[in-house]
């Protein structure tokens, strides 16, 4: 029987292989490699799902209650977002920019304690599922937006040879895809904040108390709200928007990792 650990190790191996395949694709400029890379990520996603399901069964709850659990679920959400985006936009080279994100988040998970701890009474709430699962998809979307924006910046420097023209989306399309990902991420982040507020009211006695995690979620929300406003109203797009989206993701990472490691607050049990 495949356990959580084995499932995750196989998933990581498949993600690493996928990344190498994508690197080969870029160096050899043979687009056939994208097919293998894509399948490796899909298989990786299946094993990743098995690992998460195993942990769910073992813990008797959804694995959303610790840094390790959130990180593995976050990496899983990036994989899922990649599969959806690749399928929706037929973007065959997206994997090279997404696999480092998946592996980076998984590496962070590996640095955390994977011990299954019982839920603290404060975490024993139905709001845990709504609050954390929406956070996973919100962060996952922002990660994809960051990857797409990185491609935008890199594409500018690439020679317009046949491979680039044929297999890398036009900058305008990349810009639109990043915008779509940010819109979805922003929608989910709003739900994260609202569900968190409802839960906080039940658990801590106030729906908003400027806890560092709350505050940084609010900061991230403002950052992306500004992006959407300036874009929609002032036509702010392309390179400036791409740089902004990358910087915005830095705020996401700080909200997720920085707050837990550098600041203390009501969320410090995570």
């Amino acid at each position: 029987m495949l356990g959580e650990k084995e499932g995750l190790i196989i998933a990581i191996i498949l993600y690493v292989l996928a990344m190498f395949i994508y690197i080969m694709l870029f160096t050899s400029k043979k687009i056939e490699y994208s097919k293998y890379g894509s399948w490796l990520i899909r298989f990786g996603f299946i094993f990743h799902t098995i690992a998460i399901l195993n942990r769910t069964v073992e813990a008797g709850r959804l694995p959303l209650a610790s840094q390790y659990e959130f990180a593995t679920s976050f990496a899983w959400a990036i994989s899922l977002s990649f599969i959806v985006y690749e399928w929706k936009y037929k973007f065959k080279t997206l994997g090279i920019f997404v696999t480092p994100f998946i592996l980076g988040v998984t590496a962070y998970a590996a640095m955390q304690s994977s011990e299954i701890k019982p839920l603290l009474p404060v975490l024993q709430s139905k709001w845990l599922f709504f609050h954390v699962s929406t956070a996973i998809f919100s962060y996952g979307s922002f990660a994809i937006a960051c990857a797409l924006s990185t491609i935008f910046i890199i594409r500018e420097r690439l020679k317009n040879d046949e491979f680039t023209l044929k297999h890398l989306p036009q900058q305008e399309a990349l810009d639109q895809m990043a915008y779509k990902a940010i819109s979805f991420g922003f929608f989910m982040l709003t739900i994260v904040i609202v569900t968190g507020a409802i839960w906080a009211e039940r658990a801590w006695g106030r729906y908003w108390r400027w806890d560092p995690k709350e505050t940084w979620s609010f900061i991230t929300w403002i950052i992306y709200a500004i992006y959407l406003h300036v874009r929609l109203n002032k036509g702010w797009k392309n390179k400036k928007a791409a740089i902004y989206a990358i910087a915005g993701f830095a705020a996401v990472i700080f909200t997720y990792i920085g707050v837990n490691t550098l600041l203390s607050g009501f969320h410090s049990y995570l």
């Binding site: 936009y89 037929k90 973007f91 065959k92 297999h167 819109s183 929608f187 739900i191 609202v194």
Partner: peptide, 27 residues
């Protein structure tokens, strides 16, 4: 707020991406 956001998400104001463009992202 969430309802408004859902509507904006479902019906983006500046419809810069239409169905024809979506298919032509990768030439």
């Amino acid at each position: 707020m969430i309802l408004g956001l859902f509507i904006v998400f479902k019906y983006p104001i500046n419809k810069t991406i239409n169905s024809k463009e979506k298919d032509s992202y990768v030439r």
